[in-house]
Write a protein that binds this DNA or RNA. Structure first.
Length: 377
RNA sequence: GCGGUAGUGGCGAAGUGGUUAACGCAUCUGGCUGUGAACCAGACAUUCGUGGGUUCGAUUCCCAUCUAUCGCC
């Protein structure tokens, strides 16, 4: 297995880690943010543009690619990298999140999950073994255990059963993992329950994985609860393996996560809200569709180095958005992605200079985030 | 000039003699966290061309008037 985390520095102020993650498709620095490209494409963004924003690892999704085009089609093309022409590292999510997001049409049993296809309504069955088998064919650098991501809130009893089942699924998945060039990550669950997070973390580590993810976050709980979910389990995760906080992409939560020792984040937030006209800026949120931007010739963010900010005005971007022109969606997505990736670059420098604590304070100050306005994104 | 038809928010368009006048588009504003999402939600007509009348009550009925439109001289 070719995945290795090289921890290079620990921030003296916060304990956050800076490191290099070595993958079969090159090395990337952590902490990092990973753009999401569910259907083997980061919506509207070409691989070349991803390289320009220094994207690093990107995500794709097992459930969705399984349904369409089918893992055999991807395998036939020589794997995901060749299929979608992305040269950097790729991570595939297991489909576990779809158990949660498609909850109206699913039945969870010990053996696996029965879904109703969202495309044609046909009955489908996904198990830990099947998920790993599909991911082996897709050929990403990092693949994920098939877990259950329970909704929030849920009773302690439900969560306990779910956590235990996810552990059994993790072991089954690992046993079925055939492509040893791919790193396999386990996923810690347990909701907001301290005891279950601890058990989930310890037992997942016992099974033994190449990296560990914290799942069950960003499912409707408030931010303080989410931070607790991290605190309850992160100390049980090995220090020499990457730690991945799943589904988190608001800039304030990313900083809070890094401070707590997280190395990897992924989220649809920057791309989705960009498609819907919302932008991340150094002064907080900007809705490009708002009338105040009609005659505004400034870029989205004066300090941003992205292609969009270097070449286009708010006035023009608002026009494109309102006309539903694809170029608008693309330029806005480029900006948000670059904004977060640049934030990670700044975070890494701050860690290396032992001043992430100051960085966090300054950042929250600058973005007007405090007890009265804890929202962030 | 005569006859017919129609006049409801920026536009299109329901509707009924009786509490808050559908809906669509546009506009304005929010929200989106391991993507079933170019999505979702909210706001937006003290008022139904205008002036009278009938009625307990009229956007709905009647008269007049204006405007548009069709047909005929």
């Amino acid at each position: 297995m070719d995945l290795r985390l090289e921890v290079k520095h620990i921030c003296k102020q916060t304990g956050a880690r800076y490191g290099i993650l070595h993958t079969p498709h090159g090395q990337v620095e952590v902490p990092m943010f990973m753009p999401v490209g569910t259907l083997a494409t980061v919506k509207y963004i070409s691989p070349e543009e991803l390289e320009d924003i220094n994207s690093g690892v990107i995500l794709s999704n097992t459930y969705h690619l399984w349904l369409r085009p089918g893992e055999d089609v991807v395998e036939n093309a020589g794997g995901l990298h060749k299929f979608m022409n992305y040269k950097g590292p790729i991570l595939t999510d297991s489909g576990g999140f779809q158990v949660f997001s498609l909850s109206e049409n699913r039945k969870i049993e010990e053996e696996g999950v029965t879904f109703k296809s969202h495309l044609d309504g046909s009955k489908l069955f996904l198990s830990p073994e099947k998920s790993i088998e599909i991911q082996n064919k897709l050929g990403a650098d990092i693949i994920m255990s098939f877990d259950e991501c329970p909704p929030y809130p849920v009773t302690h009893e439900y969560m306990k059963n779910s956590v235990e089942r996810t552990l059994r699924w993790a072991a089954r998945g690992k046993a079925n993992h055939k492509n040893k060039n791919q790193a396999l990550f386990g996923i810690v669950q347990g909701g907001e329950f301290q005891d279950l997070r601890k058990i989930s973390a310890e037992e997942t580590v016992k099974i033994g994985f190449d990296g560990y993810a914290i799942g069950g976050t960003s499912v409707g709980e408030d931010k303080e609860t989410m931070y607790k979910m991290i605190d309850y389990c992160i100390d049980y995760l090995p220090k020499d393996k990457p730690r991945y906080l799943m589904g988190v992409g608001s800039y304030d939560s990313i900083i809070e996560g890094v401070v707590r020792g997280i190395d990897m984040f992924d989220c649809v937030l920057p791309t989705r809200i960009a498609r819907h006209g919302a932008l991340m800026t150094s002064e907080g949120r900007l809705n490009i569709r708002d009338k105040k931007n009609e005659y505004d010739l400034r870029p989205i963010d004066e300090g941003c180095d992205c292609y969009t900010c270097k070449n286009y005005s708010r006035s023009y971007l608002r026009h494109l958005y309102r006309c539903k022109e694809g170029l608008g969606q693309r330029l806005l997505s480029i900006h948000n992605l670059r904004f977060l990736i640049r934030l990670m670059e700044e975070i890494r420098i701050a860690i290396k200079e032992d001043r992430l604590g100051d960085f966090k304070e300054d950042f929250f100050e600058r973005y007007g985030l405090n007890e009265k306005n804890p929202k962030g994104f």
